[in-house]
Nucleic acid binder design. Structure first.
Lengths: 230, 230
DNA sequence: GTCTATAGCGTGATAGAC
DNA sequence: GTCTATCACGCTATAGAC
């Protein structure tokens, strides 16, 4: 939970950790309660910092958000593109499709590629913010994620001969919505299955997301001008 | 300030309209900005009521939410069950599956069954609240929607011979997440398709949701003890 | 450069005058 | 039923201590 795993400049220790402590606390709290529901005072308290320090380091509350995105977006997208390249080497179209989808979903759950060790935590923040309609988050997301999304749509198009590209976009959009919803409201699975299945089981969630999406995409095969397109 | 232009009922009926005006304003604003981002003062201003009147009629802000749910939940679920019964009369399994899914999705978009004329608006409120983790909303949702969800899972199971019930729950869960996400972040479709397709087109959104979900469910056929279940 | 203390104004909630 | 006054707490900005 300290700042040891930071890829800081080898010299210049200069970071007194206050800044990072605030950032970590903000991310943790916002992943749990969203943006508006968390106060700067809570963040200051949780990080052991003074309220004034928060505005000194970050200015407005919104900038805290921007920083959280900053430190997660690039590693996550790099990991996605890396997995996507690996998936591209698979010859069988069906296997490749599954691997492509998986390379999009996995980094959203996994913590391996993350700065402060929390892929799922960061994805929860994004999920909540996407619904809160936070303008700052909207801008950052559009700028940092849209090109990655395009790459995935392209890779998927390569696995589904003759599929309408717009329809693929819709299906990928549904995947993201399902992913977000599951990460935040996973307990609903437990309730509706009477405890037989759990939404907190990330392995299972990934598997379900991948196979459900693959099936919805396969359905588009050869529907270039099909009934549901455009 | 200037509350003279209030539209009174011609008859002086028991409803002083202030209460309903507040409720309407609250629903409209919360559908746009969520719960925490909307202040009681904004609601009071938009409805032409005094701030004190808001707390007089509803007490806490949370109760406003409860009332909004109150007046929409039952009509929407009634409409869903009505459409579900109609769908149940279809003999062909594939056609019935599409109709069943449609009967779940349509009332979430349509305004026909709604009190204040806004099925999509109410669904947006639910979507945002589901992510904000609002506790009051959670309780109401669990109480009012879970049984409807069970009915749909059952109806779907009747269309997919041998499918694992838990897997169906996962797929229906994904449908709800995709629906919510589309209703709030539909502009993403416009961006990623370069304007060729629009997320604001509800007819199209419904069609895409229904067919994508149907495909993901068909995929479960005969996988009662399949690889992705439990 | 970093942090603390404090003051401005907006917000939810309450008590009590009309 | 309606409205005003008031309170505690929220975000933000800034002055001044280390």
């Amino acid at each position: 939970m300290q700042k040891n795993e930071k890829i800081e400049q080898p010299y210049k220790k200069a970071r007194p950790s206050t800044r990072d402590a605030i950032l970590d606390a903000a991310e943790t709290l916002m992943a749990q309660h969203g943006y508006h529901a968390v106060s700067l005072r809570e963040i200051a308290r949780a990080s052991g910092a003074n309220l004034g320090s928060v505005t000194y380091h970050f200015g407005a509350k919104e900038n805290l958000l921007a920083e959280i995105y900053e430190r997660h977006t690039r590693p996550m997208n790099l990991r996605r593109m890396e997995l996507l390249r690996e998936a591209g080497r698979i010859n069988d179209q069906e296997d490749r499709l599954l691997a492509v989808i998986r390379s999009f979903v996995l980094p959203a759950f996994s913590s391996q590629s993350d700065v402060a060790g929390g892929g799922a935590r960061f994805t929860r923040v994004r999920a909540i913010l996407s619904m809160e309609g936070n303008e700052a988050a909207q801008r950052i997301i559009a700028a940092s994620f849209d090109d990655t999304s395009h790459a995935f749509v392209d890779a998927i198009a390569g696995c589904i001969p003759g599929a309408d590209r717009n329809a693929i976009v819709w299906r990928c959009h549904f995947l993201l919505g399902a992913l977000y919803y599951t990460l935040v409201n996973g307990d609903r699975i437990d309730r509706l299955t009477g405890g037989a299945s759990s939404g907190e089981d990330h392995e299972l969630a990934i598997d379900q997301l991948v196979h459900a999406t693959a099936a919805s995409l396969r359905d588009l095969s050869g529907s270039g001008d099909g009934r549901t397109s455009t």
